[in-house]
């Protein structure tokens, strides 16, 4: 019933529109004008609209930057992240400046040079000097940006892995994450998907000597200011481990091992102080992986060495977990 009503209303609206448009066209025919010929008056209105709506858009942009600024991610909680933030500030600053120069120019030109039947445009087909200038300037700016960007990238990706870098494996599957700590030897035991069975959800090879002291958990604890190397694996489809607060992201690809090293430099407790009691570091999935992609999370906790020691001691190692309590 409602469908029929909606249908009738739509038909009526269309019929009305047809009539309105027809009346408009007939009227101007009577006045001996071509309705669709653009008049000086149209040029004035449309030019003015570019000025008003165009600048309205620019004001809308500024309004968003002011009102929503507090919703953006807080400053990075990692060493390399701080440099990324700096690069972001510089790049953003730059594109905002260019945006606020070129967009007003476009809208203003539209208004300023709105046509008049009696006017004539200025014939100008090219100007080599000008064209060289506006090719060279962006080239210089981009060169600087590229160099700065590549340095930052290099700094973020080519982390030095030393003895003291803590190894943690992050294992992805539809739709959850599991962490594996490398234990006292700081070595992860081998793993193979064919060994996944029962409680051994990560397929850890228990015959490997490095496996016995590994520990499995459903949250990741990190020690503040201590470098960590996250190693990623996936069991089924591509996932992406995304830790926005640390400026860390890496795809988890079945059959391939990927990694990301970084040094967290703010504890969860510190973040709670600045960002509110509810703050938690979280790991999100950032690559479409199936129906519950939107809800694939794991908590990250950054804490002091003492707190970490207490927590890790409370966790069973794999030898105990998998082999003894059958």
């Amino acid at each position: 019933m409602t469908n029929i009503l909606i249908f009738i209303i739509v038909i009526l609206v269309i019929a009305t529109l047809v009539q309105i448009v027809r009346v408009g066209e007939l009227l101007s025919e009577i006045k001996n004008k071509d309705v669709n010929e653009v008049s000086d008056k149209d040029n004035n209105t449309q030019g003015l609209l570019f000025l008003i709506v165009g600048f309205g858009f620019l004001i809308f942009v500024v309004w968003q930057m002011i009102t929503w600024n507090h919703l953006l991610l807080p400053p990075a909680s990692s060493v390399h992240g701080t440099q990324i933030d700096l690069l972001m500030k510089v790049s953003m600053g730059l594109i905002i400046v260019v945006f606020f120069i070129t967009s007003p120019m476009l809208f203003y030109f539209a208004f300023k040079y709105r046509g008049k039947k009696s006017n004539n445009a200025y014939f100008l087909s090219h100007n080599n000097k000008l064209e060289v200038v506006w090719t060279v300037i962006p080239t210089i700016i981009l060169t600087v940006l590229i160099i700065f960007g590549l340095k930052t990238w290099d700094n973020a990706m080519n982390v030095e892995v030393t003895e003291s870098t803590k190894l943690i494996e992050v294992y992805a599957k539809q739709y959850n994450w599991t962490a594996r700590y490398s234990g006292i030897d700081n070595k992860l035991g081998k793993a193979n998907y064919k060994l996944v069975k029962g409680k051994n959800t990560l397929g850890v090879d228990m015959l490997d000597v490095n496996s016995a002291d590994d520990k499995m958990a459903r949250e990741v604890h990190l020690v503040v200011n201590e470098p960590v190397l996250l190693k990623f694996r996936s069991q089924d489809v591509i996932h992406s481990a995304f830790l926005p607060h640390f400026r860390v992201q890496m795809n988890c690809v079945p059959g391939i091992s990927t990694q990301f090293g970084f040094t967290p430099n703010k504890t969860t407790a510190q973040m709670k102080e600045s960002e509110g009691e509810d703050f938690e570091y979280v790991l999100l999935c950032n690559k479409i992986c199936g129906a519950s992609h939107f809800n694939m999370q794991m908590k990250f906790i950054v804490e002091t060495q003492e707190e970490y020691d207490i927590w890790i001691a409370s966790q069973d190692n794999l030898e105990k977990k998998l082999l003894t309590q059958k």
Binding site: L106, F109, Y113, A121, Y122, L124, L142
Partner: peptide, 25 residues
């Protein structure tokens, strides 16, 4: 990032085409 250069050139050329035109909307 190199693509930004020809893209910028296009934008400037559009702006220069509008400049001192007799624009019919």
């Amino acid at each position: 990032l190199l693509i930004a250069i020809p893209s910028a050139v296009k934008v400037f050329n559009y702006l220069a085409t509008l400049w001192r035109g007799n624009i019919r909307f």
